[in-house]
Amino acid sequence: MMTATIHITLNGFEEAVVSEATIASLIRDFNEQDSDLIVEHNGCFVYPAEYGKRVLQDGDRLEFINPNFGG
């Protein structure tokens, strides 16, 4: 049996991901766990404590953003 997939937009590109994907699992899948990231989910800033709990839905928009701390 095939794992169900959903389609989300990640950093402007459409991606097919497993239907139970969370923000935390996507950060692992996209190999971003070592970088300081801001996560935007459907226009909202997501705090790290939420990453493992936030299950993605079909059509969600996600952005991984590198924060800018220079001046």
Binding site: D36, P67, N68, F69, G70
Partner: peptide, 29 residues
Amino acid sequence: GGINGFNGMLSTFIPGRTPCFECLFSEFG
């Protein structure tokens, strides 16, 4: 405000009215 390369970000934090800087970035190195 902060910048890096071609990019930047900014927000106005007002105590009691908005989240604070650490709400967003306390986990950053």
